[in-house]
Write a protein that binds this DNA or RNA. Structure first.
Length: 560
RNA sequence: GCACCGUUAGCUAAGCUGGAUAUAGCGUCGGUCUACGGAACCGAAGGCCAGGAGUUCGAAUCUCUUACGGUGCACCA
């Protein structure tokens, strides 16, 4: 039930729609004052009365009913207390009824949202910097599906560029099949790094030649490339599986090789292409941007050219309602340029493209550098988190049966949650101390809370949840209930702002409220209807927390 | 130099379209040790919300400006 709207409908203010009034309704800082409040300062001019008088006038006018229990005026605020029992019964029965779909909606029915995320580079292992796009995109993918959209996950593979010529060149000089098969992607990456550090002028030239061979369909060069690609995909699949990440498309940059010429032709035809210093560009000076490079002076295509082709291809293929690019903010200008060029080409859907930018990861002693070997591999972080979880479990709950599975859920959960808990735009300094901390505002805290709740429910045995309880919720119960009732709104807000962190913070906040309830209100020791009521509330909390963590790709063990 | 982003307690951060004494976690100090699971709970200390100006009845929130930090600015992706 939408309480703000309900309240707004009871109020008649000249010149204001119900929607506007509903939007003006806020939540008081202290529950003692009320559950909802309408600040009346804005209306002072309109009604030619002081805010205090206005609030008092409304307080006297508005009747209480089954939903609004109390209306009061305080310092120019009109405060509402809602019927707690009503909210309680509604929320509990709704969560019971909707179960794992509680919080979902059909708001996006019939709409396609393309989400470009993770987008691995062939021959490069995942380091900690790749975590954000992967896990943010994965969460958005689930959130949009949850809201009824048809989400299309796209892994726009970085499989095009002169670096693959370099890689093949390095392999031909220094590598061999056995070493690469044994060492996997790291062995491949080492070859590339060695090339960057040691390659002679001669080899640089050779590398350019190899790249040309790939482009021209040379069998040996392509076989090698495909082999490296296979190794990379096998490697990332393992990581994706653990992070609960999936894609619907793995079309990489190379796929667009033959789709760029039509774009270039169209740009030319529309008079957007101009020559500058030998290169073909779209001049964006009128929009305060540097030009968008379409073709190099040697005629080769560029990053932007492929992104233009890809955007058009995606629109034609999926007819998306919007398309998200989950890419670090370093690419701000690039996407602004690409979107603007599409707009200038007359693609009215250019407005439906969004760059979901996020902050960068650095290490405590500066930024990462693969070449210098200053890098934190994602799999190492995952391993260490799982190991730590395992050792804590072994210590605290040695009798637990599936320790490995539980440690996986807890450890990987901590990795994911660490990347999703803060606003995505903020930079992150990676430290093992932080990811390995399982206290306080963490996924582990939420999972622990769930385990507690599950344990209580197991001990209680079967019980039948009623539609209505003859119970007036106490303060702790009511705070928890309000949080549970808030979940659908939180999910919608997270989608609107492209901020999975809203869901992460919601989970911690709700877990905190459950723990206060858990400490102050004994569940199993309560008797009769109260006991059942508290069990129902516990069950509802567990259900909602599972949904919340599930959206982030984090599992909830029954015991830990 | 220009553009965009950030700056809130010792540290890491919340704070939605401006609203009633600015929230948490970590760390510190002190409690809850008969636990429905202590990976928890309670309490305390800790803040001129980077500085300045403006708009407003009211600003952490909006505008301008300064400082500091980050990122980007043509043939890499």
């Amino acid at each position: 039930m939408d309480y703000k709207r309900y309240i707004a409908e009871k109020l008649k203010i000249e010149g204001m729609s119900t929607e506007e009034i509903a939007e003006a309704i806020s939540i008081p800082p202290d529950t003692q004052m009320g559950d909802y409040a309408l600040p009346c300062f804005k209306f002072a001019k309109l009604l030619r009365k002081s805010p205090v008088q206005i609030a008092e006038g409304f307080a006297a006018e508005i009747p209480t009913d089954g939903v609004i229990q109390e209306v009061s005026a305080l310092n120019g605020y009109l405060n509402f207390k809602i019927n707690r029992k009503g909210l309680s019964d509604d929320t509990l029965s709704r969560i019971k009824k909707e179960g794992k779909y509680y919080g979902a909606s059909n708001a996006g029915a019939g709409k396609v949202v393309c989400i470009d995320y993770s987008s691995v580079n062939i021959a490069k292992p995942f380091h900690i910097g790749h975590l954000s796009t992967t896990v943010l995109g994965g969460a958005l993918y689930r959130i949009f599906n949850f809201l009824g959209y048809h989400a299309v996950g796209i892994n726009h593979l970085g499989d095009y560029g002169t670096q693959f010529g370099k890689l093949i060149c390095a392999y031909k000089h220094w590598g061999n099949r056995a070493d690469v098969e044994r060492g996997g992607i790291h062995a491949v990456n080492e070859l590339y790094v060695r090339f960057e550090n040691e390659a002679s002028e001669e080899m640089q030239k050779e590398a350019r030649e190899y790249f040309r061979l790939i482009e021209n369909g040379d069998k040996e060069a392509n076989d090698l490339f495909e082999w490296f690609k296979k190794i990379t995909l096998a490697y990332v699949q393992k990581i994706y599986k653990r992070l609960q990440i999936s894609f619907d498309s793995y079309l990489g940059e190379r796929f667009y090789t033959d789709k760029m010429q039509p774009v270039v032709d169209e740009l030319k035809e529309k008079g957007l292409l101009t020559e500058s210093n030998g290169a073909q560009i779209v001049d964006l000076e009128a929009y305060g941007m540097t030009p968008c490079l379409i073709l190099r002076s040697d005629g080769a295509s560029l990053y932007a050219t492929r992104d233009l082709a890809a955007a058009i291809y995606r629109k034609n293929t999926y007819d998306f309602e919007r398309c998200l690019y989950v890419v670090a903010y370093q690419q701000n200008l690039h996407f602004k340029q690409v979107f603007k060029v599409l707009e200038l080409m007359g693609k009215e859907w250019a407005k439906d493209l969004y760059h979901v930018a996020y902050g960068m990861v650095s290490l405590e002693d500066g930024s990462m550098s693969t070449r210098k070997g200053k890098v934190v591999w994602l799999e190492d972080v995952m391993e260490r988190c799982v190991d730590k979880a395992y050792s804590i479990i072994s210590e605290k709950n040695p009798a637990l049966e599936n320790k490995r599975d539980v440690a996986e859920k807890v450890g990987i959960g901590a990795v994911i949650f660490g990347a999703l808990y803060n606003s995505k735009i903020k930079d992150i300094t990676f430290s093992y101390d932080k990811v390995l901390s399982f206290d306080g505002e963490t996924s582990v805290y939420v999972q622990y809370t769930c385990a507690r709740a599950a344990s209580v429910l197991t001990k209680a045995g079967e019980f039948k949840q009623k539609e209505r309880y003859d119970i007036e919720p106490c303060a702790q119960e009511f705070e928890l209930l309000k949080a549970l009732a808030d979940f659908p709104e939180t999910v919608a807000a997270a989608a609107k702002a492209y901020e999975p962190s809203f869901v992460a913070r919601y989970a911690v906040d709700t877990a905190q409220k459950f723990n206060k309830f858990y400490i102050d209100c004994k569940i199993l020791q309560a008797e009769g209807e109260l006991r059942e009521y508290r069990l129902a509330l516990t069950k509802a909390t567990l259900s909602v927390l599972k949904n919340a963590l599930g959206l982030l790709g984090i599992g909830v063990p029954e015991q830990m």
